[in-house]
Design a protein around this nucleic acid. Sequence first.
DNA 1: CGGTATATTGAATCGCGTCAATCGCGGTGG
DNA 2: CCACCGCGATTGACGCGATTCAATATACCG
Lengths: 252, 252
Amino acid sequence: MEPAAIVLDLNQLRRSCGSCALHELCLPAGIGVADLQRLDATVKDKRMLDRGAMLYREGDKFDALYVVRSGSLKTFVQNEAGDVQILAFHLPGEIIGFDALASDRHVSQAEALERSSVCELPYAKLQQVASEVPALHRQLMRVISREVVEEHRHLVMMGRQQAQEQLATFLRSLADRYQRLQRDSTALNLPMSRYDIANYLGLVVETVSRLFSRMEEMGVLEVNRKSVRVLRPDLLAGLCRADAASKRKDAG
Amino acid sequence: MEPAAIVLDLNQLRRSCGSCALHELCLPAGIGVADLQRLDATVKDKRMLDRGAMLYREGDKFDALYVVRSGSLKTFVQNEAGDVQILAFHLPGEIIGFDALASDRHVSQAEALERSSVCELPYAKLQQVASEVPALHRQLMRVISREVVEEHRHLVMMGRQQAQEQLATFLRSLADRYQRLQRDSTALNLPMSRYDIANYLGLVVETVSRLFSRMEEMGVLEVNRKSVRVLRPDLLAGLCRADAASKRKDAG
DNA sequence: CGGTATATTGAATCGCGTCAATCGCGGTGG
DNA sequence: CCACCGCGATTGACGCGATTCAATATACCG
């Protein structure tokens, strides 16, 4: 698959979960030191992905979950006609692949947005360790549940917000995750294209482009292609809320 | 909480998972007979809910999952301003409450759409049994994963389809679930209001109403308030697909 | 340096939301 | 049993926001 040189690099890069910088964001969170070693043993060597490389495709047999270690990925579904809907963008520390648990086959696809690395967690091994380490099981369930909650946010964004609110919400969620990663949450780097952003929000690319321009005029952002500086986080937060009653309050 | 007479009824109605009609759709699916008894022991008495009654609210402490036994519920999130987004409608055999696993508190709400009954699965007990019955664990993971996949469908519907396609897709998904329940999938009974349907799809109630009328004119449906007859399932299926390239094919 | 994909901007169109009026069903009380 | 009331549902007229179509600008990559 990859040149031998790169494979060697990977082996060098191999680290234990215990010493990983993402430790607290990742599966090990809340797991004791002793059990950590057992989890550690299940992690296969990291995989490097070039920009545009697929981590898994729809229909692929499910055999592992993946933790984003560096870089970023997008996950999406695609129908027969080729239409794509992006489900999420994934930053370091985030775990992907849960869609396949139901049917043993992936029903979505994962693609690297830039050169990225992931830790592979073979599910059979993971399950075995989890059966002996209850804390790991709880943690696994928590992580899936977080994904469910995150999708709720996506649904609210698409269903109740208008375009500008959506983009503001998207940027804020990105900023929040930057903060968790100890990055400067006002200096966002957008690894995905405008098309990706538009697709994720259920809009067309022109609308997204116009909104970036408008927010720049308003003095909220400073946009420069993939680099976005948040000049006024307070204003950005304000743009997320629909002040007027949006569409419907309570469906009694 | 409830009158004593009703509580007595509940005790009478108490059935084991093994003899439940929903057996194959519910948590027990794929669990051996021996283990079934252990699962069975964790199920608390059923709860009856009148139309409009809340099963849980946002912020409630998480202590159980629930299986819809009869009737139907809606789950939704609500922001500070009171805006509601309906996440899903739940028919018999479906399990709800997974949103709370992440934080030990519910982040969504569940309300009965009609007089309904649910089986309560206290999570502490469930976890204990699951730790001794690996098959149950796998099944639990599968069920959550199904929820993730179902939300993907909801996202695609909202993000890529226009109003008429959305309503058609909604009706078809309902018909599919009717079929699983061995009900006549061409005679749909909509327990939720037009407001609920509109909210679920990210539309306003007038649009939904107009679409029902239009589909009736087209000869696809026969609509009578809450009762909808599907006259032409083939046409309905056709309405789900956006023939034209909808917004964006591949976000490469 | 040229070719191509990505991004921005403008003008015209249209689908859906908003506002408003009416209908029809279900529950209630006289 | 019927008149009344109230809420959910339907229908029409109108306006706005987002898409569509089209042109141009800018970055990226060989």
